[in-house]
Simulated scan of single mutants.
Amino acid sequence: MSKRAVLEVIALDVEDAVAAETGGADRLELVTDMAADGLTPPVAAFAGIRAAVDISLRVMLRLADGFDAGDVRALVRAARELRAAGADEFVLGFLDETGEPDLPALESVLAELDGCRWTFHRAIDRAADRDALRKRLCDLPGLDTYLTAGSAAGVDEGLPTLLAEAARRGEPGYEPRLLVGGGLRLDHVPRLRAAGVDAFHIGGAARPGGWDVPVSAAAVREWRTALDAA
């Protein structure tokens, strides 16, 4: 397969971002507070990272742990401030109490993003019905990616779902790119690449020393090499 796969790496700060770019990352997901699985970073953190690297940045819009939108006005305000600072790609995704997509919250935030490209994150792995969610979201402006492990439990359990969804790419609701992440390991890569998956997301895998230490450029380079070889 000649098409270069996208490698996205979670970054918390400038040091992470520079190491990820050095290792061969194509894009960064910018977050803070990984104890809550990644929340919206401060505008100053975005600005510092944007000044330090040249690769694409997708900024998380999520203010609390879980997949409830919470304070939608605060989300809209955060989106507005990040847009004013130059952010033009985002990550978001909200579910209601029944596991359905929270369309009012999504539409409120997307109105502020004004057509920017965005990823619907792993809320899809907690949805009541993945297929129905995709079809309900298919007309939302800017949606070009789903970040998913195929299962809330991670890629090991979700691999059959990922392979099935990869085979449906181009169908209604399945036009966005499949970005695989969540318990992803290098040994998953050959099978996913053979199925046509061309985007991969790593967090802990880029930090062999754990979340208390920065991203390792060498670890990112190992993933870059593996993706290019698969």
Results as ranks from 00 to 15, higher is better:
Met1Ser: 15
Met1Arg: 14
Met1Asn: 15
Lys3Tyr: 10
Lys3Pro: 11
Lys3Ala: 15
Lys3Ile: 05
Val6Ser: 08
Val6Ile: 15
Glu8His: 00
Ile10Arg: 07
Val14Ser: 00
Glu15Tyr: 11
Ala19Lys: 09
Glu21Cys: 04
Ala25Gly: 11
Ala25Val: 14
Arg27Leu: 02
Leu28Asp: 11
Glu29Asn: 06
Glu29Ala: 07
Glu29Arg: 10
Leu30Trp: 12
Leu30Asp: 09
Val31Glu: 09
Val31Ser: 07
Val31Tyr: 12
Val31Lys: 10
Thr32Asn: 00
Asp33Asn: 11
Asp33Tyr: 11
Ala35Asp: 10
Ala36Pro: 14
Thr40Tyr: 05
Pro42Trp: 00
Val43Arg: 01
Val43Asn: 02
Val43Phe: 03
Ala44Gly: 13
Ala45Ile: 13
Ala47Ser: 13
Gly48Ile: 04
Gly48Val: 07
Gly48Trp: 00
Arg50Lys: 12
Arg50Asn: 07
Arg50Asp: 11
Asp54Tyr: 06
Ile55Val: 15
Ile55Lys: 07
Arg58Trp: 02
Val59His: 00
Leu63Ser: 15
Gly66Lys: 00
Phe67Ile: 01
Asp68Met: 10
Ala69Val: 02
Ala69Lys: 02
Asp71Gly: 12
Val72Arg: 05
Arg73Tyr: 06
Ala74Val: 02
Val76Pro: 13
Ala78Gly: 06
Ala78Cys: 15
Arg80Leu: 08
Arg80Gly: 01
Ala84Ser: 10
Ala84Gln: 12
Ala85Gly: 03
Ala87His: 12
Asp88Trp: 02
Thr98Arg: 13
Thr98Ala: 15
Pro101Leu: 03
Asp102Thr: 09
Leu103Tyr: 04
Pro104Trp: 08
Ala105Phe: 13
Leu106Val: 03
Glu107Lys: 14
Ser108Gln: 14
Leu110Ala: 05
Leu110Gln: 08
Asp114Trp: 09
Cys116Gln: 09
Trp118Tyr: 10
Trp118Asp: 13
Ala123Cys: 03
Ala123Ser: 05
Ile124Thr: 08
Arg126Gln: 14
Asp131Ala: 07
Arg134Pro: 15
Lys135Glu: 09
Lys135Thr: 05
Arg136Phe: 08
Leu137Thr: 11
Asp139Arg: 04
Leu140Asn: 05
Gly142Ala: 04
Leu143Glu: 06
Tyr146Asp: 01
Leu147Tyr: 15
Thr148Lys: 04
Thr148Ala: 10
Ser151Trp: 10
Gly154Pro: 08
Val155Leu: 05
Asp156Trp: 03
Pro160Glu: 01
Thr161Phe: 00
Glu165Ala: 02
Ala166Arg: 07
Ala166Phe: 14
Ala167Lys: 01
Arg168Leu: 14
Glu175Ile: 06
Arg177Leu: 13
Arg177Lys: 08
Leu178Ser: 04
Gly181His: 02
Gly183Tyr: 01
Gly183Asn: 13
Leu184Asp: 08
Arg185Met: 04
His188Val: 01
Val189Met: 05
Pro190Asp: 00
Arg191Phe: 02
Leu192Trp: 11
Arg193Gln: 12
Ala194Ile: 09
Gly196Ala: 03
Val197Lys: 10
Ala199Trp: 01
Ala199Phe: 01
Ala199Ile: 12
Phe200Asp: 10
Phe200Ala: 12
His201Asn: 00
Ile202Arg: 01
Gly203Ser: 11
Arg207Lys: 12
Pro208Glu: 15
Gly210Ala: 07
Trp211Ser: 10
Asp212Phe: 08
Ser216Pro: 12
Ala219His: 06
Arg221Met: 09
Thr225His: 03
Ala229Phe: 03
